[in-house]
Design a protein around this nucleic acid. Structure first.
Lengths: 149, 149
DNA sequence: CTTTATGCAAACGATTTGCAATCCT
DNA sequence: AGGATTGCAAATCGTTTGCATAAAG
């Protein structure tokens, strides 16, 4: 059977495995935060994560520390959508599509949508000719969505 | 592919005209800051601007307020290169090339280079189909430059 | 038991704001 | 004169850090 390609949800056991495989401790907070990230439909800010923890709450600094560890281990990607804070998105190795994509954010209502397609290889080839290695790119769109237009 | 070191320099009179045409007062600080931006080879942070003011110095909050007015009037473009602060770049109507371009930033030494070529129309067409209007995009590259490799 | 994680409070850096004094038109 | 601008200090906001205690391996 097929797995929906945009659903990168984890269950608790998979989350714990991911943590162990990344060399992180399987603490309650790390599992909780990882699950929250995995079920999010759009990239989350630390504030988003923090305020949706409910009864599994913790200090905001713990969210920051946890997210930073996830980032170092490559479990999440940090992105900036022109807001004055960062957002984080899970990188789930089980799902090709979660590896690289972009976003469109409505400048009016703030709604965020994902864009899967991305081919910037011509750009990267050009830049490689200048001697750059380990290229990465960052591409985001904004516009006014149909509801707000 | 071209790396461009664009010369969008203004002189004092042109700067004053630009301000007037934008409906801003021609104060000493506005002229000074606009000139500094116009002669910069890379996008500047507020801290960059502030510390290079020399004898024309002012309070940092004035730099922020001025930059924000420039931004509202479309005289500068705000960009984020993955640092924890924003940078600003003059948009000089006299120079085609200053209207739209991108950057490569070395993740090791922080050096920034400009890239002129940009054709993301296929992306924007795709997104327009989703009903978005007034599309804008934001594209930046990072890598390890030849000196640091 | 030794290391890592967490809570709490304080520290920080970038950016914003209130207010009184000063500049621009 | 009257609104816009600036300096200064204080306030915000996102993020980081030091330290003492609790949890993980």
């Amino acid at each position: 059977m097929k797995i929906k390609c945009c659903d990168s949800s984890l269950d608790e056991n998979k989350a714990k495995d991911l943590l162990s495989n990344s060399g992180l401790n399987r603490t309650k907070m790390k599992v909780t935060i990882l699950l929250e990230l995995s079920s999010a439909k759009t990239p989350l800010s630390v504030a988003d994560i923090y305020q949706e923890l409910g009864d599994e709450s913790c200090d905001k600094s713990t969210v920051f520390r946890t997210i930073n560890q996830f980032k170092e281990k490559g479990l999440v990607r940090e992105i900036n959508l022109g807001e004055d804070f960062n957002r984080y998105e899970i990188i789930n190795p089980d799902h090709e599509h979660s590896h690289h994509h972009h976003h469109v954010r409505c400048r009016e209502c703030g709604d965020i949508k994902l864009i899967e397609k991305c081919d910037l290889s011509p750009f990267e080839k050009m830049i490689s000719k200048l001697g750059y290695k380990k290229m990465e790119h960052y591409l985001e769109f904004t516009g006014i969505c149909s509801k707000c237009a």
